[in-house]
């Protein structure tokens, strides 16, 4: 019986032109992801984790093979359809937060909902819910410049989560945070993962993040060298 996965990756190869030749960033990746996973691509720089995250996020396309995200073949999506997939079902968290500096915390979180053309009252409720999740209701009028790094990343998480996407992609989300803030952010993400059943996919080599993962996929030279389900203390 065929199982319906959230994401299915078959024989994925990604080549980048370098000089006269090609550099193979991903080589024969086969993976599947289910709803509610808390998974991370782990590996050294150049192992292909960000490239894999980009392709899942429909920011890039495969050179060979197929990547199916929520029933859509990423390689066959035009830019418009790829934008719609990102807008409706994917959330992004960046290493450097990338909040829009001229907008308040509330407005930054509201932005993805404006793209979804959600009506004002629903929008307000969704934004406030998201800010409650990340514990920033007292900062709704603040601008990013008035926030600490940890607070900025919490706003970024709220922005990614506000539309309740099926998948959140996070590239080195704790790289600019100290240990305490990193743990706070990760605990918050884990809580959202458990409460909302959102699939979180990380690209990271940060041990602090790795400690929280429920599944760790190790990459090296563009290949999966280990795909490991990590049991929690309770499960152990």
């Amino acid at each position: 019986m065929e199982q319906n996965f959230l994401i299915t990756i078959n024989n994925l190869v990604k080549n980048f032109p370098i000089g006269g030749g090609e550099f193979t960033a991903l080589n024969g990746i086969n993976l599947t992801f289910n709803t509610g996973e808390f998974v991370g691509f782990v590996g050294p720089s150049g192992s292909g984790k960000t490239t894999l995250l980009n392709i899942i996020g429909s920011l890039d396309t495969p050179s060979e093979g197929s990547v199916n995200v929520l029933g859509r073949e990423v390689g066959k999506l035009n830019t418009k359809k790829a934008a719609i997939l990102r807008r409706q079902h994917l959330g992004f968290i960046f290493q450097t937060y990338n909040l829009l500096p001229v907008y308040s915390v509330y407005e930054n979180v509201e932005f993805p909902l404006l793209l979804l053309k959600m009506n004002a009252s629903e929008r307000k409720k969704a934004v406030m819910d998201a800010l409650v999740w990340v514990g920033l209701t007292d900062k709704i009028k603040s601008r990013p410049a008035q926030l600490s790094g940890g607070e900025c990343q919490r706003v970024a998480v709220a922005r990614a989560m506000v539309k309740k996407p099926k998948i959140v992609l996070a590239d080195e989300p704790t790289a600019n945070l100290d240990a305490a803030n990193s743990h706070n952010i990760l605990k918050m993400m884990l809580k959202l993962n458990e409460e909302l059943k959102t699939t979180f996919i990380f690209a990271t080599h940060d041990d602090k993040v790795i400690k929280y993962l429920k599944r760790k996929i190790s990459l090296e030279d563009g290949k999966v060298i280990q795909d490991e389900i990590i049991k929690t203390n309770k499960e152990k």
């Binding site: 830019t79 418009k80 934008a83 990102r86 807008r87 992004f92 990338n98 993805p112 793209l115």
Partner: peptide, 9 residues
Amino acid sequence: VRLAIGEEK
């Protein structure tokens, strides 16, 4: 950022 969030080019 706007592209990543899903705004069309």
